[in-house]
Amino acid sequence: MEKFTVHTGRAVPLRYSNVDTDQIIPAVYLKRVSRDGFEDGLFAAWRANDPGFVLNRPEYKEGTVLIAGPDFGTGSSREHAVWALQNYGFKAVLAPRFADIFRGNSLKGGLLTVVLPQQVIERLWEMVEADPATEVTVDLEAREVRAGGITEPFELDDYTRWRLMEGLDDIGLTLRHTDAITEFEKHRKPWLPVTQ
């Protein structure tokens, strides 16, 4: 996984709440068996049907920070939603609330999801809409977002922050504790089912 410390880039204001995983990437795009190439499915219906949709507007073409309304990523557990955003070029998503599974997936895969108060999101939307060239900095080291006159701290637990900054994958970390897993397995309840 790529290390994440500080990212600065243009932003895309997505003024919708409850952007569910079926909007981020519709199910028909989930049939591939690879981890890349999902950018064509990102917000596919909105991009196809709405010429005014933010990603169809040239002023937001270079955006790498998505700023969305509350409950972003509700719905399915498809990690393809994270891959689609990353494949398209997004490095971070800012929103007042995220669905749990989506948030977990994003932080596993190195897409930084940042929770900010609704009023800060509103100010960022206004700022970016007024000047699409506005640069937004997402600083994981300092745990703050900076743009124009705004400096807003955000919360992320120390462990996840460390893992993202080091670019470590969880599996390698867990495999350091194989002995503990083996020990645990000796004491599992005897009636627990096996599949074979």
Partner: peptide
Amino acid sequence: FGIGTSQVEHVMATQTLPMA
């Protein structure tokens, strides 16, 4: 609980999951 593909791989490799 539902999990993403990174966690699917994690469970396959370790039969465990780190959970917040």
